[in-house]
Write a protein that binds this DNA or RNA. Structure first.
Length: 601
RNA sequence: GGGGUCGUAGUUCAGUUUGGUUAGAACGCCGGCCUGUCACGCCGGAGGUCGCGAGUUCGAGUCUCGUCGGCCCCGCCA
């Protein structure tokens, strides 16, 4: 029988300890704890219960001697919320549970209070991972109660805290920038917010604080940072959410080197801790062009070598016409030497071929060489000692067995397809049991502009980045050749952050606007406030933005950022728990001067 | 916008290839027994709109089409 219902929390149940804190040292102590019931194990007149809070589990025990207490106790079910007063008792030696942090003791219950009984949960909250994603999201509060998720959000908290402490010690100020901003026409699709007070006008939610942080530099705030929410209305992925958090950093009077130094120092502290970071090597650097040709990616995974080699020269006069003509037409022939591949079956090789074709290659040529000799579909096309030259180029032979995988075609298609292939081979065959290793690198000197279909140029990154000094002469004749002070920080094949040294003079900024086809009037309309700011003392400056969610994901060893965000969205950008987005009342829309046109069908 | 994959008990899944008796298992849930469990054990029980809709068929969880939703990817994305 339930006693009369109490709605308020009685201070007499104030906790003296948290569940996970108790141990042998507390023996004999009278304690009050509170938490969620995880498991009730009933043995006739003796009953055990595991009580959980964020700090851990503790076993409660009630014996038969108090019938009314016992009756209440056995009525408890998983996820009920209770408080309990009792005495900490050392367990008999043979009953100690070494698998439990508090397994040396248990609490002999003297009184319990039930704050709230739980419905039967839709999935077992104690399980490591068993529920489907959509159930987990629908009942996110239960999912978050799981140990794994508690640890994940603790990790995220630690990263945020250490970032604030570290940057603060380095003289950075955290400054907030607005969430309702002017729409930026470049880059990602904006989330729009209608203005009630100004009919027909819209704010945008910020894709990043980019312009504001530059303005803050003009304002003299030397060193700025912010844990900034960034919102982009683009399609989602395992590592992309419509809202994510960036560690946004900007500094005045710095070169690329100083941005690297601060960032490396921060990253090493976050990944390895203060004590260890001094012993870590500086992050290697590679320029974009090299990254693309050697790894076929602008964010190479360096946990394995497996470099791509350019063997175009070997095939320029080759008897293998497909390759020779690719080279004649200005393309390239490149390949990967993959020793474990000598064991591949024909089916496995066919699978690889299918994969490079889907990445845009025309085909995949293979050369297998091992103790038993050489086998290759190319063999019959090659004249003289051509095959020998290929083998020696890749340092393969009967003494050095390997499978050579070769692709020919346009530079772009070869880079893309071999890059995909390298990643696949490396991650499938070379990475086993090496998931706790972090391989960082800087990729820099990205091109500033990419050609637009049908002529013209668009910014490869964003339009505020400084061209390399040596490339400035090409701005007029050949923008495609101009590289910028642009850099990405990459870890294990994931882009952790990117940044640049910015332009700080109006005339150069205007020149870049012009290259992407933005005339003076348009530039004034869209970015006039920034240009004007530069005219009032814009200092040289640059910075970087690191993805906090991805940082947590990589340190946590997972492949989805959703597990490091308390309330993430599904792939269709919905929140299943509260069912956002939702329709709104006609009246609200009218106030915002918006009319919905229903799509037909 | 496109490709792939999944959707069956509260949950995780089997059953779908080859349409055919009453749709199964484990966990969970409910009832009973048990004084040292901690993945407790034993006995018994309840629980199903096979995502939804249409079609083919004598007959559909199973085949076809459509649709909704989850996940992965391409495009897109500081």
């Amino acid at each position: 029988m339930e006693r009369s219902v109490k709605y308020h929390y009685d201070p007499k149940w104030k906790r003296t300890h948290r569940c996970g804190e108790l141990g042998g040292a507390d023996t004999g102590r009278n304690v009050t704890i509170a938490g969620w019931v995880k498991k009730v194990r009933e043995f006739g007149d003796l009953t055990f219960l595991d009580l959980w809070d964020r700090t851990g589990l503790i076993q409660l025990v009630v014996e038969a001697s108090q019938p009314s207490l016992h009756r209440l106790f056995v009525s408890l079910r998983a996820e009920d919320v209770i408080a309990c007063r009792g005495t900490v008792k050392k367990r008999p030696p043979e009953m100690v549970n070494l698998k439990m942090a508090t397994g040396e003791v248990e609490i002999v219950v003297e009184e319990i209070e039930i704050f709230n009984r739980s419905e039967v949960p839709p999935f077992n909250v104690s399980d490591q991972i068993k529920a489907s994603d959509d159930l987990r999201l629908r009942y996110r509060y239960l999912d978050l109660r799981r140990d794994k998720m508690q640890r994940n959000l603790e990790l995220r908290h630690r990263l945020a805290l250490e970032t604030r402490n570290f940057l603060s010690r380095q003289g950075f100020l955290e400054i907030e920038t607005p969430m309702l901003v002017k729409r930026t026409p470049e880059g990602a699709r904006d989330y729009l917010v209608p203005s009630r007070l100004q009919p027909g006008k819209f704010y945008a939610l910020p894709q990043s604080p980019q312009l504001y942080k530059q303005i803050l530099m003009v304002a003299g705030f030397d060193r700025y940072f912010q844990l900034a929410r960034c919102l982009r209305d683009e399609d989602l992925r395992a590592d992309r959410q419509p809202e994510h958090t960036q560690i946004d950093i900007e500094m005045s009077f710095v070169t690329e080197e100083e941005v690297f130094a601060v960032t490396e120092s921060l990253i090493k502290e976050l990944f390895y801790g203060e004590a260890d970071k001094g012993r870590r090597d500086p992050f290697p650097r590679i320029d974009y062009e090299q990254a693309m040709s050697r790894y076929g990616s602008d964010k190479p995974d360096l946990r394995f070598e497996l470099e791509i080699s350019d063997c175009s020269k070997l095939f320029a006069e080759s008897g293998f016409e497909a390759f020779a003509s690719a080279v004649r037409q200005g393309g390239v022939v490149r390949g990967i030497s993959f020793p474990p591949g000598t064991a591949f079956s024909n089916n496995q090789i066919k699978k690889l071929e299918k994969q490079v074709k889907s990445a845009g290659a025309k085909g995949l040529a293979t050369v297998k060489v091992d103790e038993t000799g050489l086998s290759s579909p190319l063999d019959k096309f090659l004249g003289g000692d051509e095959m020998d030259r290929i083998l020696s180029f890749f340092e393969a032979g009967t003494g050095n067995p390997s499978l050579l995988l070769l692709v020919a075609g346009s530079r772009e298609s070869v880079e893309k397809s071999l890059g995909d292939l390298r990643l696949y081979l490396g991650r499938t065959y070379l990475l086993k049991g090496r998931n706790d290793e972090f391989k960082f690198l800087w990729v820099n000197r990205f091109p500033l502009f990419l050609p637009v279909e049908g002529g013209g140029w668009e910014p490869a990154h964003h339009i505020f980045s400084m061209p390399l000094e040596e490339d400035i002469p090409f701005l007029d004749q050949d923008p495609g050749r101009v590289r910028g002070h642009l850099y990405d920080l990459v870890c294990n094949g994931t882009e952790l952050g990117s940044g640049s040294i910015r332009i700080h003079r109006r005339e150069l900024q205007e020149k870049l606007f012009k290259i992407i086809g933005m005339d003076q009037a348009a530039a004034e309309r869209k970015f006039g406030f920034l240009l004007r700011a530069f005219e009032f003392g814009g200092p040289p400056h640059g910075g970087i933005a690191l993805g906090l969610d991805r940082l947590a994901m990589i340190i946590g060893g997972e492949s989805s950022i959703r597990d490091y965000i308390a309330f993430p969205k599904t792939q269709s950008a919905a929140s299943l728990m509260e069912e956002a987005p939702s329709e709104v009342e006609e009246e609200i829309l009218r106030e915002l001067h918006i009319r919905i046109e229903k799509e037909e069908g």
